[in-house]
Simulated scan of single mutants.
Amino acid sequence: MAEYLSIDIGGTYIKYALIDDRKQLYGHHKVETKGNIDDAILKQVETIIAGVMEHTVISGIGISTAGIVDREKGEIIYAGPTIKNYIGTQFKSYLSRKFGLPVHVENDVNAALIGEVWQGAAKDEDQVFCITLGTGIGGAYYHQQIIDGYYHQAHSVGYLLYDPETKTNYEMRASTSALNQRIHQELGAEVSTADVFDRAKQGDDTCLSLIEAWSQEVAKGLAQIILLIDPKCILIGGGISRQGSYLLDHIQKQLPAFLPDHFLKTNIKIAELYNDAALFGAVYPFFKEEKSSC
């Protein structure tokens, strides 16, 4: 039975799990991401792999990571401020030599979308856009395959809608970090996003107003995606997607205001796999290879 190790590298945590040939994820763990000095993250990943291989025989390693990835080289070619000193990190060449195993490396939003198309809310769908709302905002588009753009920089939607007056872009206004900032300014640092959603559902006008104002910002960016790409489906991912239909209703209510009349045809859906989406997507190439070799 073939087993693979899937690793998802974020700015706050590195999550990892094993997946077997029945496509079952198990053995989930996470560790805090170290400050990336002297290739600290690459060394963390190396330590994780070595630890897993002490008790499990694995056939390959899939890595999902923040930053823009050259998929062929398995290397980070661009990274924002979330992870410093990350550009040039050569996961594939270093780890494949170190452990003698095949290694696939993918951007985390791309991996999440692949996971959802393979095993989640967009199973067997095509022309699907995924937007993840988290510390920042990421985007990915699947049309028979992931569409990267010529320089691998397509769908960097967090940088949309820059406002020179406020010096803010889309992710500065519509990420969950932006929502948290609004909450802390109005209600205090001890109030969480989950608290605000709970209170809004119970009729709290202040909390409802906060969610509506933030949902409007989210909807502005979704409208740009629809106008430019016309996807069949947009998936909304990230931790806040656990708010499910309540979140979706607020965003859908705001969206028509930013589109021409009768223009909205795209199906807006909540992602299903949550934190497992990128773990599935990171190892999908191994299953794709198995299928194509049959």
Rank of each mutant, 00 (worst) to 15 (best):
R173D: 08
G88W: 09
N107L: 06
G136M: 03
G281W: 05
G115N: 04
S245H: 14
K269Y: 04
S177T: 15
I114K: 03
L161M: 11
D205Y: 03
V57Q: 13
N36W: 15
G134L: 01
S6G: 13
A79K: 01
L279H: 05
D198H: 12
A111Y: 04
H250P: 08
V218K: 00
L210T: 01
L42R: 04
A111H: 02
Q44C: 15
Y4H: 12
K15D: 06
A122M: 06
G62P: 01
A111R: 00
Y170M: 10
G10Y: 06
L259R: 13
A40P: 08
G149R: 00
K220N: 02
C207T: 03
L273G: 03
V69Q: 05
E165Q: 12
K253P: 04
G10N: 11
H184K: 13
D124A: 14
A219Q: 02
W118K: 03
S245Q: 15
A278W: 04
S293G: 13
L187H: 07
I236T: 10
Y78W: 14
I240Q: 02
C130V: 01
I58S: 07
G239L: 12
N107V: 08
G188K: 14
I49P: 13
K15C: 05
A200G: 09
S59M: 15
N107G: 05
P285S: 13
P102I: 14
K167P: 12
L179F: 14
A2Q: 12
F280E: 00
G35V: 14
I87K: 15
G35M: 10
T56F: 14
I63A: 02
K73T: 06
I61S: 13
H152S: 02
Y86Q: 10
N267W: 07
G51K: 14
L25Q: 09
T47V: 15
T47E: 15
G203C: 08
K34T: 09
Y142E: 01
G221S: 09
G138M: 00
I234R: 04
G74F: 03
N85S: 09
T65W: 10
C207G: 03
I268N: 06
L133N: 00
Y284E: 13
I137A: 00
H184F: 15
D38P: 08
E72A: 07
L235E: 11
I14Y: 08
Y141H: 04
T266E: 06
S175D: 09
N85P: 03
E75P: 09
G60D: 11
G158E: 00
N36A: 15
E125Y: 08
G134Q: 01
L101N: 11
